[in-house]
């Protein structure tokens, strides 16, 4: 795993103030693939490295609403018919009363909301990348098992720069 080009740079700072200042200047200098690490939350640091909210909460909310609505959908089939609905591999009992739809409603909204599971690759695997000091290689089997719909999983981890701060561009 020999690398020719420079992979990244790190710098350490003594105080929170210096860290925030360095992050701001790095970001202003045009570097985008940067990260900042601190042992406690520092106000405004995430904004300084250019981290913004994404559409994930909205996607999850919409998924939850769809799931919740379909869960409440009633089916006037008597109990002894025991016709069950299948959704994402989970059996849902038919209901006669609205309150009885509660468990299936919760299940469905969770399933729909989690359908995209967009946080997972970044959350789980980016750390291993740092620890192993390079990019993570996935076997074909692991990649298939870990496929959350984000095709760029492996490439994304390896393309990221493992650095805290870039020096100011000369």
């Amino acid at each position: 795993m020999k690398r020719e080009r420079m992979y990244g740079m790190m710098a350490e700072f003594d105080s929170a103030t210096a860290l925030v200042e360095a992050a701001r200047r790095t970001h202003q200098a045009g570097y985008k693939k940067i990260d900042a690490y601190s042992p406690f939350p520092i106000e405004g640091l995430a904004e300084e490295i250019g981290f913004h909210h994404d559409e994930v909460p909205l996607v999850v909310l919409i998924g939850g609403i769809i799931g919740g609505c379909t869960g409440v959908h009633r089916d006037h089939v008597r109990d002894d018919d025991s016709v069950c609905r299948h959704f994402r591999g989970v059996r849902h009992a038919c209901v006669e009363r609205l309150a009885h739809a509660l468990p299936s409603c919760i299940q469905r909204s969770t399933l729909c909301a989690g359908f995209k599971r967009p946080f997972l690759p970044d959350r789980v695997f980016f750390r291993s990348e740092v620890r192993s000091g390079g990019h993570v290689r996935f076997s074909a089997g692991a990649r298939a098992a870990l496929d959350f719909g984000g095709a760029e999983l492996g490439c994304r981890a390896s393309a990221r720069f493992r650095c805290q701060y870039w020096e100011q561009r000369p």
């Binding site: 900042a36 690490y37 789980v124 980016f126 750390r127 740092v130």
Partner: peptide
């Protein structure tokens, strides 16, 4: 610790 690195992004979401 679920892969916690103390990144500013982590703290932002965490808070």
């Amino acid at each position: 610790s679920m892969g916690w690195r103390g990144s500013a992004r982590h703290w932002h979401r965490y808070e």
